[in-house]
Every structure is written in structure tokens, then in C-alpha cells.
Amino acid sequence: MIRGFHPLLAALVERWRPETHTFVLPVGEVTVTLEDVAHIFGLPIDGEPYLPLLRDFERIHTYSWGSACLAHLYRALCRASRYDTKEMDDPLNLLFVWAWERMPCIAPVPRHILPPAEIPVAMRWSHSERSTAWLEKTMVTFRHDIDYMQEFEWRPYEGMILPSELHGHLDVCDIVAPLLSFECIEWHPADRVMRQFGFAQSPPVNTKGHSTGPALHGSSRSAAL
């Protein structure tokens, strides 16, 4: 199990922008995407939405578990970014592994001493020993590390062998669309982080209906349908 660490979480949350679902870093906008979920957890990101509330368990393998997981992470980050919020819900493991894979400067151990990366990527971090020096870091320290980072891994999964059942799922990892999970609706802003998919980043265009503001955050599945 990958245990949380509050100083690092706080340093990440203060860079989260609910209106865009991205972290604003010195390198630009970045975020956790469907591609990350597929590699870190090995979950399907293409399939049926969670409607109607898992009533047909014989079709449970056809659901888009990955998009549901990401929707909950977005919502948890948006809630945690409020000034009056002191805690954050799961899936923290997804957030921490994403941060450690992409920002070596804040990882608890150098990646080269970990087991080779394979799907699910989270497994190689699950039993990593954290040094005393890392455990003694404060939010101020992590903030400094992020502000002055020299490296950001735009394509950390290149060369990994994806299970055959997930091959086709990568075709939708860069979609710009709503993510649905039970009552939760959150927007997947792939157009703002195209460098994470190996493309040049053009200025994002704000299109009517693609807002991640209060109107969407206040939406539920029943209200949207």
C-alpha cells in the first residue's frame, strides 16, 4: 500500500486549479489523465459509464473503471483546494504515483533503484523504502522542489508493454469529454496537456459547455441526464 504524506499532498493541492482541472507548474499546465490511470492502475478507460448503478453485475467487466476513478480524483482535488478543507479523499495512490513518476525531484526514492516499470506502475512504488531525509521534508521544502524542478517526465510510459485487453483503450486516452461515475461528473481536459501525449501544445480554446466551474462541480448524474 502506498501511504499518503500530507506535506507533499498540500504542496500539490495548492497548485491545482478547479476551473481547468490542471496543476499549474513552472513547466506549464499538467494533470492526471486517462492514460495515467490505465498505466498506473491497469484499469480500463473505455467502456460503459456507471449506469444504472451497477445493476447488471454480469456486465461489470464492461464498465469504464478508469474514468470513474479519475472523475473522483478530480472532484477530490477540487474540494481539497477550498480554503476551508483540511482533508482529501482517495484515490491518493493515483495522485502520488503520478507525481513521483513525472517529477523525480519529489519522489521518495530514485526511480532507477526501483523494480522495472510494468503495468500496473503503482506496484513498483508499493514497497519502496522512504529515506529519513524525505520523510522530514515539509510543505515548504516540497514547494521549493517543485518551483525549481529541472525535469518533468512528459512521456514516462514509453516502452511499457500494455496488456492486450487495454491496447484499444489508449485510442481514447486523449479525449476531451466528461467523465462519469455515479453522481460525479468531471471534465477531462486533455486539450490543455497535449505534451503529455507527445504532441505540441496549442493555446486551449474555451468552448461553451466545457467549463469545469461551479456549475459542473455542482452537477449530479441525475441532473445532467
Rank of each mutant, 00 (worst) to 15 (best):
Glu101Leu: 15
Val121Gln: 07
Pro108Arg: 02
Glu129Gln: 04
Ala122Asp: 07
Cys105Thr: 04
Glu87Tyr: 09
Met103Ile: 15
Pro116Asn: 10
Ala107Asp: 03
Met103Val: 15
Ala117Pro: 03
Arg130Val: 08
Ile106Glu: 06
Arg111Tyr: 15
Val121Lys: 07
Pro104Thr: 15
Ser128Leu: 08
His112Tyr: 14
Glu87Lys: 12
Ser128Glu: 00
Ile119Thr: 12
Lys86Pro: 02
Asp84Gly: 01
Ile113Lys: 01
Leu94Lys: 02
Ile113Thr: 01
Ile106Arg: 03
Asp89Tyr: 12
Thr85Gly: 08
Ala99Phe: 13
Pro91Phe: 13
Ala107Leu: 11
Leu92Arg: 05
Ile119Met: 07
Phe96Met: 14
His127Phe: 05
Pro120Glu: 10
Asn93Tyr: 02
Pro115Met: 07
Leu92Trp: 01
Ala122Phe: 05
Val109Ala: 15
Ser126Thr: 11
Ser126Ile: 13
Glu129Leu: 11
His127Met: 09
Pro115Gly: 03
Pro110Tyr: 05
Asn93Ser: 08
Val97Tyr: 00
Ser128Pro: 12
Arg111Leu: 13
Asp90Arg: 07
Asp89His: 12
Leu95Ala: 10
Pro115Gln: 05
Phe96Ser: 15
Ala122His: 08
Met88Asn: 08
Cys105Tyr: 00
Glu118Tyr: 01
Glu129His: 06
Pro116Ile: 12
Arg124Lys: 03
Asp90Ser: 14
Ala117Phe: 01
Trp100Arg: 03
Asp89Thr: 14
His112Pro: 02
Pro115Ile: 03
Pro120Tyr: 14
Pro104Gly: 11
Trp125Lys: 02
Asp90Trp: 06
Pro110Phe: 06
Thr85Ser: 10
Asn93Arg: 04
Leu94Phe: 09
Ala117Val: 03
Leu92Tyr: 00
Pro116Gly: 05
His112Ser: 10
Ala107Gln: 02
His127Thr: 10
Leu114Met: 12
Thr85Ala: 08
Asn93Leu: 04
Arg102His: 09
Asp84His: 11
Asp90Asn: 12
Ile113Met: 05
Lys86Ala: 04
His127Val: 12
Trp125Glu: 01
Ile119Lys: 07
Lys86Thr: 10
Met88Trp: 09
Trp100Met: 01
Asp90Thr: 14
Pro120Thr: 11
Ile113Glu: 05
Val121Ile: 13
Ala122Ile: 09
Val109Trp: 08
Glu129Met: 08
Pro91Asn: 11
Glu129Arg: 06
Val109Gln: 13
Arg111Trp: 15
Trp100Ser: 03
Val109Asp: 11
Glu129Asp: 11
